[in-house]
Amino acid sequence: MSYQVGGKTVEHDEEGYLVDIGQWSEDVAVMIAEAEKLPLSSEHWEVIHFLREYYTEYQIAPAIRVLTKALTKKMGEAKGNNKYLYELFPYGPAKQACKIAGLPKPTGCV
């Protein structure tokens, strides 16, 4: 299973998560989002880039509670809450935002 991005083949698993997170690019993100039927706004990109930074720093995808806490700290309460995140990513920050950001499924996602 793979996404086709600009002539390149990017492998994903049966749920759509990238097999090799090193293959991620913004073009890949757009492609995954299209597969999810989710047009990306600048608010989406803000969360996607935040997740990428979190992963680079800690080598894990954050659990939702940890994500909202970290977002609140960085961007304020208006953006660091479940409602805001679910409005942006209707299937959930874990299932959708991490997937589009090229991250594995969050650790502690029970």
Binding site: E57, Y58, Q59, I60, P62, V66, K69, A70
Partner: peptide
């Protein structure tokens, strides 16, 4: 690096 996430 992940140990540093424990605090969060």
């Amino acid at each position: 690096k992940t140990y540093r996430a424990l605090d969060g």
